[in-house]
Design a protein around this nucleic acid. Sequence first.
DNA 1: GCTTGACTTAAACCATGGTTTAAGTCCTAT
DNA 2: ATAGGACTTAAACCATGGTTTAAGTCAAGC
Lengths: 129, 129
Amino acid sequence: MNYFSISEAAAQFGVPESTLRYYEKKGLIPLLERDEAGRRMFSEFHMILLKVVMNLKRTNMPLGSIRQYVNWVVEGDGTTRQRLDMMLKHRQNVLYEISVMHEALDGINIKIATYEERVQRQSLQQVSK
Amino acid sequence: MNYFSISEAAAQFGVPESTLRYYEKKGLIPLLERDEAGRRMFSEFHMILLKVVMNLKRTNMPLGSIRQYVNWVVEGDGTTRQRLDMMLKHRQNVLYEISVMHEALDGINIKIATYEERVQRQSLQQVSK
DNA sequence: GCTTGACTTAAACCATGGTTTAAGTCCTAT
DNA sequence: ATAGGACTTAAACCATGGTTTAAGTCAAGC
């Protein structure tokens, strides 16, 4: 099994190392092993878990909830039901968030149409001066 | 022309009054008139502007950029081009954000499928005990 | 005339999600 | 053996977006 250093993990996920240290402190990265010099070693397990963590983060799950999820992962198969419920709820939240953004975008598109028309008219006036 | 009180405006947009006061302080609500007692009076113009402001906020435009937009609105028709550019850029940002969330959601959906299968298997094992 | 409710202000406070700093340890290559 | 680079820690610092607090003003109804 090969391990990744913090710099490799950070590069992999496109975040600064400081973010990974912060996540570990917050309980989002459990069971991290250390080498003889005390440096973090990210296993395959961690890389896979981190991918999930990052997906949750990108969809705006609060770090505290992500920690709860991670705790359940560590607890094992007895928590599958809780994790499933959490993911189902989260999916609803995300879909709702996206729909709110789409609605807001409709309003913005109307503004864009208005401004495009006005810019058009203004440039015509320039020509006919 | 009828005016709205801060409580009416807040109710209209589903935010606390404190948020509207904060937005005014931050320059997101320009030209607010006051009655004899110093209370804010929201005109039709403000209600329409606020709707746009809220659409920008819901799509995660930073308050500082919203203020820039509002300043351009106050400046008048000479700034139509800037506003159009800003809205076009913002639309791209929002569409990108939404696409990132959809991608993350794909990962979450895979987790959901795994968990559903596992929950299924676990309940079957219960039955066959 | 006095209480109640709606408003005012400035300033302090809060949560979230990190980033930065300072001081130190350790391995590698020259 | 020494310099450089990668790492460690705890704690301070930061930005964003508000919310809360404390003290006060004002108008209306009893």
